[in-house]
């Protein structure tokens, strides 16, 4: 015995399947557009120049020329760039975490005159694009005679209005009773902050650390201005310098690009969930 509506249901099912296929098709095309440059970059980095510029395209390299990478590695001090960037990332992350934790603590636990005004001013700094401050920062760094040092790269990046704000929101959720009882027990503010507040919010702190690590790794404008030699140059500026040296050897350019992208891709694969949730929760780029 057949159900009286079975025909109708079948039509509906057919439509649903068609709709789903269409959705997946669009998504796959979209995903292809998003990762095509990466794939192309990787494949090109393994080709010879002749294969790389052939039209119509030769999609796969005739032979995987790993030697492109060793050649690029010798052409420019990529090891040095990566080391420099790693150092700056660690300093940047440490600075951002320490300053936003302390700032957030002050704005959530202390009561002082002008707190509201000060916090408003603090939030206002989020409105001013950091790019506008290059002139003043450059002059300050120059006067401190820090040009071409790691300090020049990371010092102006320590104060983060956004991350302080984000942490403060979390700190405010901690019941004040906890603070009071800690005070009664004679715990110092410093101890309370690092032993109680930070461990209780370790997820937020970790997200801040990861997102600021990515931001610093990819930072370009400011580091490019204050680093002038290979001694301090970071990966992005290093790649840019290398780009002009490699002139039109695009397989080398792509190998160089891959070298500086690989660490972040691995980082991304490891911390994928946290990065996506962190940004989705209101992260900010650069």
């Amino acid at each position: 015995m057949t159900h009286p509506h079975s025909h109708e249901i079948k039509v509906r099912d057919g439509r649903l399947i068609a709709l789903n296929v269409l959705k997946y098709a669009i998504l796959i095309v979209g995903a292809f557009i998003m990762i095509f440059p990466f794939l192309w970059m990787l494949l090109t980095s393994l080709k010879s120049l002749d294969e790389a510029i052939r039209i119509p395209p030769m999609w796969l390299p005739g032979a995987f020329r790993i030697e492109n990478y060793t050649h690029v590695w010798e052409m420019a001090p990529f090891m040095r760039y990566i080391f420099n960037t790693a150092v700056c990332c660690v300093l940047h992350v440490a600075g951002v975490v320490v300053f936003s934790v302390m700032g957030a603590y002050a704005f959530s636990m202390y009561e002082f005159k002008g707190k509201k005004l000060l916090f408003m001013l603090f939030l206002a700094t989020m409105m001013v694009p950091g790019e506008l401050l290059i002139i003043q920062n450059y002059i300050t760094i120059n006067k401190l005679q820090l040009m071409d040092t790691f300090a020049a790269v990371v010092l102006p990046t320590f104060a983060s209005g956004f991350y302080t704000y984000m942490l403060r929101e979390h700190f405010l959720q901690i019941p004040p009773a906890l603070y009071k009882s800690a005070k009664v027990d004679g715990t110092s503010n410093w101890r309370f902050l690092w032993r109680v507040m930070v461990p209780m919010n370790k997820n937020t702190v970790a997200t801040i650390a990861i997102l600021s690590f990515i931001a610093q790794w990819n930072a370009f404008m400011w580091p490019n201005i204050v680093t002038q030699t290979d001694k301090t140059r970071l990966v992005s500026s290093g790649l840019f310098v290398f780009r002009s040296e490699a002139s039109s050897n695009l397989q080398y350019m792509m190998a160089g690009s891959c070298i500086i992208i690989f660490p972040m891709v691995i980082f991304y694969i490891i911390f994928r969930k946290r990065i996506i949730n962190g940004v989705g929760g209101g992260g900010i780029k650069g």
Binding site: F38, W40, M41, N218, F220, L239, S257, I260, M264, F267
Partner: peptide, 10 residues
């Protein structure tokens, strides 16, 4: 997560 400079090169 990837550097604009590297992608720009591509």
């Amino acid at each position: 997560v990837t550097s604009t400079i590297a992608i720009g090169t591509a």
